[in-house]
C-alpha cells in the first residue's frame, strides 16, 4: 500500500514536468499504472475526467488518488497537483518582467512539446491495446471517434457514446 506522501510526490512530479492537463496523461500513465492502479481504472479516470465539467487534470488526479487511498488519497492528489503551479504563478507574477527576456525558457518548452506529443501517442496505443476491445469493433470505435474529434465534435459526447456502444457490443 503506497503512502499518502508517495502519492503526493507523484503528482508534484507530474505537474512539474507537464505544461497542461491533457499533456499530463502520458506521464501519469507511466507513474501509476501497474503499481498503483490498474489499466481499467486508468481508462475510467481519463474517460470520466473528460466527461465531467471542470479541469481534466484535477479530476484525473483525484480519481487516481481516490482509487488508491479513498477520500484522503483524492485530496492528497489534488494538493500535489495544485502546489507546483500555485507556487510558480505566485513567483512569476513577481518577476514577470525579467522572465520575459529569458529566451532559454521558451526554447526548453519548444523542445519539450514534441516529446510530450510522442509520449501521448505511446500512451494512447497502450490504452487501446489493454482496453480489451482490439477486434474490428475496437478499431472502428477508435477511428470513428478520431475522425469525429477532428471534425470538432465534443469529446465528452463521443466518449459517452463509445461506452454505450461498448455495452451493446461486449456484454
Amino acid at each position: 500500500m503506497p503512502s499518502l506522501l508517495q502519492l503526493f510526490l507523484i503528482f508534484v512530479k507530474v505537474n512539474l514536468l507537464s505544461t497542461s492537463g491533457p499533456a499530463s496523461v502520458g506521464l501519469l500513465y507511466h507513474e501509476v499504472v501497474g503499481n498503483l492502479v490498474t489499466e481499467l481504472q486508468f481508462v475510467q479516470a481519463v474517460g470520466l475526467s473528460s466527461v465531467l465539467p471542470g479541469s481534466d487534470a484535477l479530476q484525473l488526479a483525484m480519481y487516481i488518488g481516490y482509487a488508491v487511498a479513498g477520500v484522503p488519497g483524492g485530496l492528497v492528489a489534488l494538493a500535489g497537483s495544485i502546489l507546483p503551479p500555485t507556487l510558480i504563478i505566485l513567483g512569476v507574477t513577481m518577476i514577470l518582467h525579467r522572465l520575459r527576456r529569458e529566451a532559454w525558457l521558451s526554447s526548453f518548452v519548444e523542445g519539450l512539446a514534441p516529446a510530450i506529443s510522442v509520449l501521448m501517442l505511446f500512451t494512447a496505443w497502450k490504452i487501446f491495446q489493454k482496453g480489451g476491445a482490439t477486434g474490428w469493433e475496437g478499431w472502428a470505435i477508435g477511428l470513428v471517434s478520431l475522425v469525429a474529434m477532428f471534425l470538432e465534435a465534443p469529446a465528452r459526447i463521443i466518449v459517452i457514446l463509445a461506452g454505450l456502444l461498448g455495452i451493446f457490443l461486449f456484454s
Binding site: G142, L146, V159, I167, F170
Partner: peptide, 17 residues
C-alpha cells in the same frame, strides 16, 4: 462500458497530442 470507452479515450489522447 469501459471496453467501449477505451478506443475512444485512446482516440482522444491522439487528438489532443
Amino acid at each position: 462500458f469501459v471496453a467501449g470507452m477505451s478506443p475512444a479515450v485512446a482516440a482522444l489522447i491522439v487528438f489532443v497530442s
